[in-house]
Amino acid sequence: MENPLLLFPQLNISASKDKSYYKVMNSTNKEETNKASKPGAKQKRNRLSLLLQKSEFHEDDHLGKPANLKKAASVSPEEAVKWSESFEKLLSQKAGLDAFTKFLKTEFSEENIEFWIACEDYKKCKTAHELLPKAKTIYETFIQKDAPKEVNLDFHTKEVTSQNIEQPIITTFDAAQSTVYKLMEQDSYPRFLRSDPYLNLVKGRNPSHPALRRRSRSFAVNEFQDVRSDFTIW
């Protein structure tokens, strides 16, 4: 039997043309698919511009907040000098109270100033109905045995305060607050005035950033010398 391609040579030509046609079509389809999947130069520029705008927006938003906080919490050397006049003067100014609180945190004794602040807030109660819940919260937080932020009180002061907690009055914590106040005034306050961040602030310099140093909760006088601290407000 004769080869059908010899009898019908046009079949072979047609087949070749079909193969070439399919190759060209496949190549064209792939190019169009690739073009469709890849963004054009204009589209790329639009996307890049959008990303840059978002990045700048978040960066400005992020950087703006610390700058605003720093500006709001800035303290002049003249104002800082006044803090050395007396412990009462230091606590009477918000910036001074904040700075001293941060200092006590470096000594791990911030429970003392927190207790003092809580007592100040307690004395602002206007009705007897407000006294009981606040008194119990202060007692359970700062005074009772193994309280989470127990302050260092002598036995007599703690006993008197504990006995009065069931029927609290506006002066229930006065003795305890006075004791803690004197401890801070005689022990922590002098070290605060000798600390590098405070001295740098008085001289108008930038603060240093030394490591924290742990102190005993007993507030032993002169246990440590020249405690260095890190105040984020300076």
Results as ranks from 00 to 15, higher is better:
Arg205Asp: 14
Lys126Leu: 15
Ala175Lys: 08
Pro148Ser: 13
Ala73Asp: 07
Lys65Met: 11
Leu199Cys: 09
Tyr181Gly: 03
Thr106Trp: 08
Lys35Ser: 06
Leu91Ala: 03
Met1His: 01
Glu140Leu: 12
Pro207Ala: 15
Ala73Gln: 07
Arg215Gly: 06
His62Gly: 01
Asp18Thr: 12
His129Asn: 09
Ser92Val: 06
Arg228Gln: 15
Lys42Thr: 15
Glu223Asn: 08
Ala41Ile: 11
Asn34Met: 05
Glu85His: 10
Lys44Asn: 06
Lys17Val: 07
Leu5Ile: 03
Leu153Thr: 01
Leu153Pro: 01
Glu223Phe: 07
Ser162Lys: 02
Val24Asp: 13
Leu48Pro: 01
Gln93Ala: 13
Asp18His: 08
Gln225Gly: 02
Thr137Gln: 14
Ala15Asn: 03
Phe115Tyr: 08
Ser208Thr: 14
Phe192Met: 09
Ile13Ser: 12
Phe100Lys: 05
Ala175Arg: 04
Met184Cys: 15
Ala118Tyr: 05
Tyr22Ala: 06
Ile165Gln: 00
Ile170Arg: 09
Lys30Ile: 10
Pro207Arg: 14
Ser49Arg: 11
Thr172Leu: 11
Ile113Cys: 01
Trp83Phe: 13
Glu120Ala: 04
Ile169Thr: 14
Lys23Thr: 03
Glu120Asn: 10
Thr33Ile: 15
Gln10Cys: 04
Leu69Glu: 08
Ser216Glu: 08
Lys145Thr: 12
Glu120Met: 09
Arg213Leu: 15
Trp83Gly: 04
Asn206Gly: 09
Gln10Arg: 03
Ala72Asn: 02
Asp121Gln: 10
His156Ala: 14
Lys102Pro: 00
Phe219Cys: 08
Leu153His: 00
Pro4Leu: 07
Gln144His: 12
Arg214Val: 11
Lys19Leu: 13
Leu51Met: 09
Tyr122Glu: 04
Glu159Lys: 02
Pro148Cys: 14
Glu150Asn: 06
Leu11Ala: 13
Ser195Ala: 15
Thr141Ile: 09
Lys82Trp: 13
Pro77Ile: 06
Lys158His: 05
Val202Phe: 06
Lys123Cys: 05
Asn29Met: 13
Lys182Cys: 11
Asp146Lys: 15
Pro4Met: 00
Phe173Lys: 02
Lys145Gly: 01
Arg45Leu: 14
Lys89Ile: 11
Tyr198Thr: 01
Glu78Asp: 11
Ile233Ser: 15
Gln163Met: 12
Arg194Tyr: 03
Leu69His: 02
Ser109Ile: 12
Ala211Glu: 14
Thr127Trp: 06
Glu110His: 01
Thr127Met: 10
Gln93Gly: 04
Glu150Tyr: 03
Leu183Lys: 08
Thr127Phe: 12
Ser229Asp: 11
Ala36Trp: 11
Pro197Thr: 04
Cys119Pro: 10
Ala135Pro: 01
Phe224Lys: 06
Asn34Lys: 03
Ala220Thr: 14
Phe224Asn: 02
